[in-house]
Amino acid sequence: MQETFILPFLWLTLGAILTLFTFSFLYKDNPLYKFAEHLVVGVSAGYFVVLLFWTSLKPKLIDTVFYNFSNEWFYILPGILGILMWFRFSRKLAWVSRYPIAVYIGIGSGLAIPLNMQNFVNRQLSATMIPVGFGNWTDFWNIFIVIGVICGVIYFFFSKEHKGAFGAMAKVGIWVLMIGFGASFGFTVMARISLFVNRISFLIEDWLEIVTGSI
């Protein structure tokens, strides 16, 4: 066996073993699956801590504060807020951590609320105000969009009892939602099968090939 072959062989074999451990959950929960699951969580957490240090803490705080303080001294302010966050671990001083949380929520809300309203509500509303009719296929299909939106919204209107014409529209709304859920289910099946096929491809084309090649 060549030296350059050993390392990829070991990594691929480890990947194959962990894949099989994960699939074992389909039979029933077991220690092998638990091991694979905990390994993923542990490795992910460790990786993220190191990544955050090198991509955020070091370049944005340590380097700027210690090596470029005169130009970018203000970077120390979020640094102090970050340190205040650690007071959550003290029962007596946990209240101190509310200040950085307040700043974080304030900035987050200020950034998100107006643009969320604009992009997820206003633009979607204006996209419903569209020409409808029977002149061409686009206008014809637009009828379904308008009816679907109105009936879907009516289904979630609970201040009036769903009876008569109102109830009928709410029922159409349920059907629209069900069609949406059906589309999501179809997409989800595709997603899960993609993951499964990829693992099968890995086991057969990558791992088995290298194993049979090594014998």
């Binding site: 979607q124 997409f187 595709m190």
Partner: peptide, 14 residues
């Protein structure tokens, strides 16, 4: 991803 696909078609229409 497939799971997300159906949720984003409305942004295409808008």
């Amino acid at each position: 991803t497939g799971v997300m696909g159906a949720d984003y078609y409305q942004y295409l229409q808008s």
